[in-house]
Amino acid sequence: MKEDTRKAPRVGLFVTCLVDLFRPTVGFAAVKLMEEAGCAVEVPMAQTCCGQPAYNSGDRADAAAIARQVIEAFEDYDYVVAPSGSCAGMLKKHYPALLRGGAWESRAEAFSGKVHELVGFLVDVLGVTAVPAAHRGSVTYHDSCSGLRELNIQAQPRRLLATVEGLDLKEMENADVCCGFGGTFCVKYPDISNKIVEEKTACIAAAGAETLLAGDLGCLMNMAGKLHRQGSAIKVRHVAEILAGMDDTPAIGGGGR
């Protein structure tokens, strides 16, 4: 990396639990993209999960404890970035709501101002207009719900994908409709979730692209798991992997390295 005369913004990477456990490649792709854009990226060790499983199950006490833990670990960075619209939305939109009316209210508000979803951060904050990546093949992009509706992530990934050499974006129908994941929803109501993801995989297949991309690993694992069960050959990746030029690694479910 070239030395810059300006001070590089310090970014705390919120890895997200699913990336940490299931697909570290996404974390490394995020680091690469932000370092190339001139950031100094650090990964605080005191992170586990954003707390959504508790928050969305009505367990406010545990969710609030986790929120305080995350804020403590990250509040000194210039920016806090997560490769997930859902977790970034939790940190940015829901922590302040969760900690409202207590001693942590102002800290949560200040923290919220620093939080960004990865691709939104690259485009809207860092002003990245192109990535030096190449990918021979066609992709289709699914808009994950929280990123789309809580953080307005829709144009940014498409803008950057358009600059990937050799990449052909084939939009699917209903790209902005839920894939049926919903965190614990998909195991609490598996049959309903299944119906929703079947509608999704039908749209994905109809798009005729070789690879499916999205910005949230939960949704990606849901769609990938269904596509694989259906015997589909469509590969599934996090959008950051393609933007970072890391398409040489196996796709989701493609075996360990």
Partner: peptide
């Protein structure tokens, strides 16, 4: 313990060691 998931879809195996270990 993952029956809710594997009833209708396959579960991708974790890639390798955790991100934190590798980092």
């Amino acid at each position: 313990l993952a029956g809710g998931w594997t009833r209708h879809h396959d579960l991708p195996a974790p890639e390798a060691r955790t991100f934190m270990q590798q980092w």
